[in-house]
Design a protein around this nucleic acid. Structure first.
Lengths: 240, 240
DNA sequence: GCGATCCTTCGGCCTCCACCGAAGTGTCCG
DNA sequence: CGGACACTTCGGTGGAGGCCGAAGGATCGC
């Protein structure tokens, strides 16, 4: 026996980490980081495992509180349990080593380029677009990074103009910085980031590309961002 | 084969999580969360494993970038690699399930009570004391939680009075909230939290209890906190 | 009702890895 | 120089857990 039981009542860090220490479960969580609900079979195919294997993993993840599920007919929908969980996975992803070298196919490369350009990160925007919006907001004095990330009066006003009212001080911070693992630069997350992303979908600024977590900036969106943020977005001619 | 290699170049979340998915390695990291350097044998005894086992674990943790080491004669000192790593472990600890029921010994209970009262959490103060200081600072308008945690002008001035100058905006936020896993309430972390903790040691407000991460509030410290924060600290008569 | 589809349970296989003790190296101290 | 101590390497053991396919529900659409 080793003396793990000396620390009874303390956090069982290993149990939580073990949930994410398997390649397949980690794949599931990274996929779910797009904030949407997936069915068991979608995840299984995505990770390349048998359905029975996926069932086992989902039971563990749901049991461990990382995912929540919802049954609809013969489908089992799962999603990340809450923003806190998404934050944990983001943090792990930002600190984790990269995978081995990329001897990749052309379609895969295209898919990845779309993903790097603009995508959802749980409930907010990431990728080049997410970073660009964040930096434009900073340049216009809507965000302040001096004393931790804060939303200025101008920022609150700008959001209000869009019809976005922030919820009153909950446990969740209104603005939070999230490290982008393709750009390696922070972008806007938290309640305000989520609200802004929701608005971007609702107003038709962005749309999903197929069923992936990648999003495309529409012409409407491009115009809106130019008008409202002075953002010159080169999304149609990727500079990479 | 499963298709983990479809995501070449993406973060290898599982590899990082696997480092923390073992009970012994998790024990090591939680112990190192006191911010100090431990020798291999101290950690081995703490976790109740053989020295050879500890060597293997430390190789993995150092190799994975979670710990840094320093050789001094026949000793191998290890510590957490950086504040980012400490933050990751804190986050995991705050979300992890508690261990099974506590059928504990009296000395262990005393040790835990001292730990709950006041301790270091990597480089800042936690426990009842850490939370109390944070709340007193909030009450006096030095901290603002409205738009994420920020240090107000009053807060900056108060720190300056103590001779604490914050480093100019680095990547590390000056103030950050850290969730306490005994109190379940946030306390002050980040650069300011670290500086305040350092000052508390230097000025003799607190001292280490033996070799643990628990600290005791000195009479000097109690007076200083009463004078400067209006804090009525009941540390000598624990109310629990 | 009848297939098709989604999911689950079960049994068996197989790999991975945490553990220890024994033996060896390097360092400190008397 | 010799003993004590900190650490490392190595081989062997045992348990945990990830994987699959086959078989059995449950649900949908026709």
């Amino acid at each position: 026996m080793n003396s793990h039981d000396t620390h009874v009542g303390g956090p069982d860090l290993a149990a939580l980490a073990a949930l994410l220490a398997d390649g397949t479960r980690a794949d599931f969580c990274l996929a779910l980081l797009d904030g949407r609900a997936w069915t068991a079979i979608e995840l299984a195919r995505h990770a390349g495992v048998a359905a029975s294997t996926a069932t086992g993993h989902l039971n563990l993840l749901v049991g461990g509180g990382l995912l929540t599920q919802e049954r609809q007919g013969r489908h089992r929908y799962v999603r990340l349990a809450d923003p806190d969980t998404a934050e944990l996975i983001e943090k792990l992803a930002s600190m984790a080593p990269r995978r081995a070298d990329p001897p990749r196919s052309l379609p895969a490369a295209n898919r990845d380029r779309a993903l790097a350009r603009a995508r959802t990160c749980y409930d907010h925007l990431a990728g080049t677009l997410g970073v660009a919006i964040t930096e434009a907001m900073t340049d216009r004095g809507m965000l302040d990074w001096e004393q931790g990330l804060t939303l200025t009066g101008d920022g609150t006003a700008w959001l209000a103009e869009l019809g976005i009212a922030l919820p009153p001080a909950t446990r969740r911070p209104p603005v939070r910085s999230c490290l982008d693992w393709t750009e390696r630069r922070p972008h806007l997350a938290g309640a305000a980031g989520a609200a802004l992303c929701r608005h971007a979908f609702d107003a038709g600024w962005i749309t999903r590309i197929g069923t992936s977590r990648a999003v495309a900036l529409t012409d409407t969106g491009e115009r809106a961002l130019t008008d409202r943020l002075g953002l010159a977005v080169g999304t149609h001619t990727p500079a990479g």
